[in-house]
Write a protein that binds this DNA or RNA. Structure first.
Lengths: 209, 209
DNA sequence: GTCTCGTCCGGACACCATGTCCGGACGATG
DNA sequence: CATCGTCCGGACATGGTGTCCGGACGAGAC
């Protein structure tokens, strides 16, 4: 007879979550000192203190683990980006800058995972797909924001909402990645101001004067 | 006694170039049907019709081969981008669009190699370095163009030339990559028009009226 | 107290790609 | 015919991956 007490199941689930959490934590630690590509499952499980064979009980492969890690981060980014399109029609340039900086902060907070995701996106199809969802979601939100602004008169009506949304999203994503890259000895404040200026002059400038 | 006739040396060099060329050609062919990461040296040399051991006489590794391939392409891109900052002070928006489209054409022409380079940049340090040179070179050219325009009155003087150049370059690079990516069922014309609009309203718009 | 179940460990295995090395073949030169 | 440069083919060590299995162990079941 299988032992299916409620308490047993709960205990099992808890233990499962505990080990799963150890793995997620371990990969973040590994990513502090190594590139995602360079992280081997061997070192990963040693860091987590579990057997290599056990790893495959929890995740298909390294990519699966990263996808699990990325999910929460992507949600956080989408949420923080929401402050932009929630801006009121009469928002000032400073309001826009603050919204942009909020997104940048989220990127910085999750810098380790985001770097790995961008890296893996280059050659792991499934991660690329997941990342594409983030991009597409953002693009459609930006496009909707522009179209809404055009109807309500706070955005230029002679621009192509869809295509402009593409470029602005690509630009922002790429720039934020540069922001969290080790090589980037960038001056964050001036950088974010410049991004704000570009978006402002592209979308709103001529409707305020 | 070693045989070092002039004709011998010339013949040897020619043969060397011939094999080297076969390898460069083979990798381009492989990249038509496979990702850069998925290309194995085994298949590569089979495609080129040489022995695997011979490969290592010509290149250190796969990355070395790609770097060799990328060099020419990068030169071509820098050259085509030059048409932008060579635009006269009284250039129209259409002139700008044509300059942008020229860059896009170059990207498309070298789509196979550029895709591989962007992919490899994610995890191959030395290729990343090479790609960074392209970016930095472009950024400084754009920055110089903006600064020049500010002095001569054809560009907005209330923008940060350096930081704006960063964003515009990142945006363009990322967008052009999307343009050559298989997933991108993008409408090229509208897309390039939108890029032109963004750059125009950011840099020049208020100086012409 | 013993049985059984779920779970994890440790190790073995086959597999694959990489980079190095070497002996043999071959052609061109002196 | 000896020599040199070059390429081929194959062997080898290395290191990572994903799968599999026997054994251990704790916690309920009876």
């Amino acid at each position: 007879m299988p032992s299916i007490t409620r308490t047993t199941q709960a205990a099992r689930a808890k233990r499962r979550e505990e080990i799963r959490g150890r793995l997620l934590q371990a990969v973040e630690q590994c990513l502090e000192s190594e590139t995602y590509t360079d992280v081997s499952i061997e070192r990963l499980v040693r860091q987590a203190g579990i057997a290599r064979s056990t790893f495959y009980v929890y995740f298909e492969d390294k990519g699966d683990l990263l996808r699990a890690l990325a999910e929460d981060v992507i949600v956080a980014i989408i949420e923080s980006a929401g402050y932009w399109w929630a801006l009121p029609p009469d928002a000032t340039k400073d309001d826009l800058r603050e919204a942009m900086e909020r997104i940048a902060d989220t990127y910085r907070t999750h810098r380790v995972v985001m770097s790995a995701v961008v890296e893996a996106t280059a050659y792991d199809e499934r991660i690329a797909e997941q990342f594409a969802v983030l991009l597409e979601r953002t693009i459609s939100e930006v496009a909707a924001h522009i179209a809404d602004g055009q109807r309500r008169g706070f955005a230029h009506d002679d621009i192509d909402a869809q295509q402009t949304a593409l470029w602005i999203t690509w630009m922002t994503e790429r720039g934020l990645f540069q922001l969290i890259t080790p090589a980037g000895a960038v001056e964050t404040e001036r950088l974010m101001q410049a991004l704000t200026d570009i978006v402002w002059s592209t979308l709103y400038a001529r409707t305020r004067s």
